[in-house]
Design a binder for these strands. Structure first.
Lengths: 150, 150
DNA sequence: GCTATATGGTTACAGATGAAACCAGTTGGA
DNA sequence: TCCAACTGGTTTCATCTGTAACCATATAGC
């Protein structure tokens, strides 16, 4: 007879920890900037590069194209992001930050890093690196299931 | 000017890893046993003890009382769980596994452990312990935000 | 004892999310 | 060059999840 203590079941622990952190992050962004997580992720990725299509953003943020579509629409609506025609493929556009969007990003980014620092306050740089590497391994070994879902 | 690479932002990495693992777990439970994650969690906790109220289950599984209520209703409906009167407080019941529920649990538990083993295949026991401890620390330092949400 | 407040649980409602259907534009092959 | 299959993106629909309102029972203060 097998027994399983939920408290010691790692997928459960992982989920709880992740949900707490996500809740912390989400409520901070929401309260300070009126941004949802998908919107914030788009801004972060757009800020890194020079004009991305929604399809590219989906890949970069691992979000569904529907989620990307909605978040992008909201950002355009708010005047934080602008659509430029994508020469060479008229089905898509290139999304770039407006001046306002860029300014917001400059406000959000430090807050995000601050929050991250708070959550990992007790961690040494070495531990953080270890943790990040472990996440990557987990992600990789759980990835196959993702495709199975179809 | 602050820049932030989303890929290196730990709350993001954590969320991605957790979502992948959850997706793997969820689709396995669903496919093999027709169970959703909240239902499975209830079964696991009920199996550990001897009759729990929904309120206790909510605490043990960190799930909302609404989620617990719905999952419990489904399990009772399916004949996996039974409600016993709670002497001393008639507002609540004690939930216990039926024979069928117990049998299902005996089937699910090994599969769950197997899946966990697959996801953490590359990890040494030492690494697993380290990882679990880190999750606990993260959970603790992100917890304060939970109450902030109200 | 009786009323006010608190607590366990359910129901109703609203927001978030993803799968599937859909539309527009693109590409490869007859 | 024309049509079939494909791809980027949006819309529709079903599902999940949580907040708020609610009902029933319990408990504390008078």
């Amino acid at each position: 007879m097998t027994t399983l203590k939920l408290d010691e079941f790692l997928p459960y622990r992982l989920s709880i920890a992740s949900n707490r952190v996500s809740a912390a992050v989400a409520s901070t962004y929401q309260a300070l900037f009126g941004l949802k997580i998908p919107e914030w992720r788009l801004i972060a990725v757009i800020a890194e590069g020079e004009g991305a299509t929604q399809q590219a953003l989906g890949v970069a943020t691992r979000m569904d194209k529907v989620t990307v579509s909605r978040a992008a629409a909201t950002l355009v609506e708010r005047g934080l992001v602008e659509r430029r025609p994508n020469l060479g493929d008229q089905r898509s556009h290139l999304l770039i930050l407006t001046a306002t969007g860029r300014a917001l990003y400059e406000d959000v980014a430090p807050k995000a890093l601050e929050l991250e620092a708070q959550v990992f306050a007790g961690f040494s740089p070495q531990e953080i690196a270890t943790f990040a590497a472990m996440l990557e391994r987990i992600e990789a070994s759980a990835a196959p299931f993702d495709s199975e879902r179809g």
